[in-house]
Design a protein around this nucleic acid. Structure first.
Length: 431
RNA sequence: UCCUCGGUAGCUCAAUUGGCAGAGCAUGCGGCUGUUAACCGCAGGGUUGUAGGUUCAAGUCCUACCCGGGGAGCCA
């Protein structure tokens, strides 16, 4: 392994270095070849001149296939014509391994073909940028909670029962019993919050819903904080601080990739500053009716409703106090009016819609028992959860932020399937 | 599960009223010393998703099925 990376190539201006990577693209003539080399950290153009390298090496260069792996040696030179400001004057090439008939050409491809070749598609520039920004988003989220004194507590993937009782779960055989893949770590975070005060989990979650939309995956990643003695207002404040923090981190580190590679206009992201507008459910209903949407009090919002709501504001918004009847059993009732719940969704702007769901949890034992019965949930699996209300119950609140939906918004993607390395969709589990 | 759109060369797509199945990219060969998804010339490449039907003639019309996209519901 060499120490030199393309991202840091500027340090070696005027010096001769060896790069290890892959041939991204090649063009040229009988006497001059332009090799686009990528090494994961970046890309650089390597120029091979027949007059400099001789016939044998030039012939090797002009026969190189797309995605062949290489060691390329040459002098690093500043060049105004290069996007990165530098290019390499090649003096030596070692073909590490050839790449014959690489399926993904630099021209257009359809979604189905690209997903079939997801293992190779990841090498493309847009997909490369998306994965880099995903990495930054995740580390920025974790940095935010770590610096605020939260403890990372891992939730289990196998669960004995549904968290919310509504969505369809993936069932697995568990030593002769049934178990399910988790749809949320929240209930476990409530237990952890009683032990540590401020906690969060980060991991994959699974939903067996037969959803075929640009907003759904069957396997997606979620970060779920839970905070003891917090209320609804507290979690809204935490959410807006968190989004302001991670958006600034992503902009600081990836503005060039966002604008140049992903063609994302960054001006809407610069407006992601606290406070975010807080819209009561009733206000949201009134706004939507005014815009001509046909809907009644008591229902949830559809994709089009969310689009209309978010386009009325220039930054993410909170919609709070949904009717208790359409929210999960563990949501706390609004003491001001019991038909509302102390719930909140955060909707991303520009039509992206819900990226965070959460709220204050019910801390009254009898209320929870009634709600579990109302939802026709088996009481047995929830006894441990009810213990949290039997032994020092405490007001607490939390939320879950969807990584892929947040990334799709930040990067301006149309579909969240590009926002996870290997998407799992209703009709796709390969590669 | 429902609504809707689609399936033609390795890839992206075209094919008029039912009338010889085509182009770009990729690949191969040739040309070009500054290309930026390079360009120019030539060549090879097809069981039009599957099965049936109508017709002198079906990529095109009809029936059934298979596969996929987008959306609804559900949610992050």
């Amino acid at each position: 392994m060499k120490d030199t990376s393309i991202a840091g190539i500027g340090e070696f201006s005027g010096k001769t270095v060896t790069l290890e990577g892959w041939l991204y693209n090649r063009r040229g003539s009988k006497k001059l070849q332009f090799l686009q080399i990528r090494d994961g950290s970046g890309t650089i153009q390597a120029v091979v001149a027949l007059a400099d390298v001789g016939e044998e090496l030039f012939e090797l260069a002009s026969g190189l296939n797309q995605e062949a792996s290489l060691r390329v040696t040459g002098e690093v030179k500043p060049d105004d014509r290069a996007p990165s400001g530098f290019e390499m004057l090649v003096s030596g090439i070692e073909l590490v391994a050839d790449s014959v008939d690489y399926p993904i050409s630099p021209k257009d491809h359809g979604v189905d073909f690209l997903l079939e070749n997801r293992h190779l598609w990841l090498r493309s520039s847009k997909q490369h940028a998306l994965m880099r920004i995903r990495g930054t988003l995740i580390s920025a989220l974790r940095e935010f909670f770590d610096k605020e004194g939260y403890l990372l507590v891992d939730a289990p993937i196998f669960t004995p029962s549904s968290v919310e009782g509504t969505t369809t779960l993936f069932e697995v055989e568990y030593f002769g019993d049934k178990a399910y893949l988790t749809q949320s770590g929240q209930l476990y975070m409530e237990a952890a919050a009683a032990a540590h005060g401020k906690v969060y989990c980060f991991g994959p979650t699974f939903r067996a819903e037969k959803s075929k939309t640009r907003r759904h995956l069957t396997e997606f990643w979620m970060l779920e904080p839970e905070i003891a003695f917090a209320n609804l207002d507290d979690v809204m404040e935490i959410q807006e601080q968190m989004l302001e923090f991670v958006t600034a981190k992503v902009l600081a580190k990836h503005r060039d990739e966002l604008e140049r590679v992903l063609e994302r206009d960054c001006t809407p992201l610069e407006k992601v500053k606290a406070p975010f507008p807080r819209v009561h459910y009733d206000e949201a209903i009134a706004m939507l009716k005014e815009k001509g949407q046909d809907l009644e009090w008591g229902g949830d919002f559809g994709g089009e409703d969310e689009t209309i709501l978010t386009k009325a504001f220039d930054r993410p918004i909170f919609v709070h106090r949904f009717p208790a009847a359409i929210k999960a059993f563990y949501m706390a009732p609004d003491p001001e009016d019991l038909k509302y719940s102390l719930s909140v969704d955060c909707l991303a702007p520009e039509g992206y819609g819900e990226i965070i769901g959460g709220g204050q949890r019910a801390d009254n034992l009898e209320y929870l028992q009634e709600r579990i019965a109302e939802h026709n949930l088996p009481s047995g699996p929830y006894e441990w959860y009810l213990d949290l209300r039997r032994y020092g119950s405490f007001p607490h609140a939390g939320f879950g932020i969807g990584i892929e939906r947040t990334l799709a918004w930040l990067t301006g993607r149309q579909h969240i399937r590009e926002c996870i390395p290997f998407p799992r969709l209703m009709h796709r589990i390969q590669p």
